[in-house]
Design a protein around this nucleic acid. Structure first.
Length: 150
DNA sequence: CTTCTGACA
DNA sequence: TGTCAGGA
């Protein structure tokens, strides 16, 4: 089938399908005129790709997992050794994701205090020990509140 | 009409 | 990721 059909059957845009190919996740054959031709198994393959990408896995890792996907079979490697290795890299991604989440939570808390400071019309330098982002409203009488110091 | 590559108000 | 161009 051509790219338009695969797109319709997977929900992935034509643009994305070409992108997956660039990432080495799909390898359709080409007609003499250059049109990409996909196999039935690619419908399932694209579903797996989208699933793993939604799980925040880097395309490189998705490619690794897909190496074990041979024509509609499970992504789980047959060889116990391969399975263990894949599980390890996947778990590594899980840890990376956890780190990002924690970093974002820190950012969220900082932003929350900045918001409350703005709403509370905080004046002067920040309190000792604060993030240093406290808003300083100038002593000037004119002009609305000043944004965070750059 | 569909797809292709390259590029970005 | 969308979308437009200019061709096939």
């Amino acid at each position: 089938m051509r790219i338009g059909d695969l797109s319709a059957r997977t929900g992935a845009s034509v643009r994305m399908l070409r992108y997956y190919e660039e990432q080495g996740l799909l390898a359709p054959v080409r007609t003499d005129s250059g049109y990409r031709i996909y196999q039935e198994s690619d419908v399932d393959r694209v579903a797996r790709i989208r699933c793993m990408l939604s799980a925040a896995l880097p395309s490189g890792v998705v490619g690794e997992a897909l190496k074990f996907l041979l024509d509609g079979r499970a992504v789980i490697p047959d060889e116990p050794a391969d399975r263990a290795r894949l599980a390890d890299t996947l778990e590594g991604e899980l840890d990376l994701l956890t780190e990002k989440i924690e970093s974002l939570q820190h950012s969220r808390e900082l932003l929350a205090t900045i918001v409350s400071d703005v709403r509370g019309d905080v004046v002067g330098p920040g309190r000792p020990g604060d993030p240093g982002c406290a808003v300083r409203r100038s002593v000037r009488k004119a002009g609305p509140a000043i944004g965070p110091v750059r």
